[in-house]
Design a protein around this nucleic acid. Sequence first.
DNA 1: CGACCACTTGATCCCTATCAAAAGATGTGG
DNA 2: CCACATCTTTTGATAGGGATCAAGTGGTCG
Lengths: 267, 267
Amino acid sequence: MRAILAVRQTHRTINGVNDTPFSLRNMQRACGSCSLHELCLPLGVNSSDIDLLEKIVHRSRPLPRGKYLFREGDPFTSIFVARSGAVKSFAVGRDGSEQVIAFHLPGELLGLDGLTDGVHAASARTLETVSVCEVPFERLEETARQVPALQHQLLRLMSRQITQREAQLLSLGKQSPEQRLAVLLLSLSARFAQRGYSATRFVLPMARIDIANFLGLAAETVSRLLRRLQDTRVLAIDGRAVDILDLPELHALAGAQLETAVRELGR
Amino acid sequence: MRAILAVRQTHRTINGVNDTPFSLRNMQRACGSCSLHELCLPLGVNSSDIDLLEKIVHRSRPLPRGKYLFREGDPFTSIFVARSGAVKSFAVGRDGSEQVIAFHLPGELLGLDGLTDGVHAASARTLETVSVCEVPFERLEETARQVPALQHQLLRLMSRQITQREAQLLSLGKQSPEQRLAVLLLSLSARFAQRGYSATRFVLPMARIDIANFLGLAAETVSRLLRRLQDTRVLAIDGRAVDILDLPELHALAGAQLETAVRELGR
DNA sequence: CGACCACTTGATCCCTATCAAAAGATGTGG
DNA sequence: CCACATCTTTTGATAGGGATCAAGTGGTCG
């Protein structure tokens, strides 16, 4: 409570501009920062090609929070990129529990897992009000056939999805709950920073339960871990507003942690 | 020990042919059952295209057990398909621990995660003596440009990698250790069956520690879980030779398990 | 034959899930 | 604009399951 107020006060006074915990709802970016566009430019897709690409993109009116972009098992026709607002994609176990696969910030791609079987392998749901771009995959593939550089980029995007999931596998399989949480916070931090926002102050677009379902933990454990990080002055938290007070320490927690080494030293 | 001998005796007497625990080492298949080939055929790649494809494939002499196909960070130039023998791909954490990403049986593709950054995101190591086909990716991409059906198949293969890793994420995040093990055994069973071998009797190509590192468990836990499955007559195990005695029960363990329901009923 | 590695089994402890309850936040309709 | 219902989050108490440590067995390869 006290910490909360402190955060709320400081972020208005320290800098004045662009130093405010913001919501992704306010994050509006042109297509120039979209993952499709961004990945085409540096690799030889010229502007007329980009026009070609932009022609096949549908822009939707804003979707409210809690809506499905698609559900597991839905026929696969398009991939999506959020223009503003965040999305989670998740798989549902037989017992109804959600495993969150990924959080998608504006400009980040989702839906590529549907191509194999022609149906989506996971569901995607908005975490806030979201504007999405929808890219009909058949037309994208067709365009890629005419534009080799785009074909290459498409393959790279898919490969990146694989790599990201492998990193998450390593996290779930081998890292401690605290490490996993630290890694997530740093990931969000880096992605916000990449979009020109503060790396240390941001508003989580997702609920604790979503974080828990992403990290393979119970919601209570996430809450307790966040408490510990506040008690050790690594974070200040007000609801979903996060202020990273000690970024180096958070990196340390995410990386080594050296639990065994610490225990050894303690002897 | 007794169970072991029982297994060894029965598999020679029950059927006589093709009912023997076999090693992947003996699994030699023509390119017709390879994932690349198999995925081209049903979708309009004609035989001359296949010739084109086969021309760019390098076949290597057999690699002994424990050799690296590539290591994390190696420059990405090729993808691989084992022709015979099994391979594991894995990521290494900072503390040196291995997270096994996948086990690759003959015909199964590996290495596609290297495209994003131009370096392999994981390492791949042979679990037995292995013959591999190496496919230079640049030439594959080039060929795909000329053969639209191949381009589509390549995208589908990548999408499948994503889907597989998402399934593994669900497993690591939401399933009990026993469920995870059951799922792995069933996965191996199905993949062996797909290649024309017994679905209930096979030899594990990997060590217990690899299973543990795949499932996010300690090796001791895997050992104990296997013991329990033997005690309940679901499996018979002799070292790495597995005999699935009760396939329906294994499916039940993998799927529902209904831990809570069972507990409720017990009240 | 011996050294090494893989596997098993046992004992113990700690961490996290689970259950429970209360406080806080959010949104809705009157 | 407030009051109520609902959902989210926090905090506490408890129990269980798996990691860890340790020791012994078995199997394999040089």
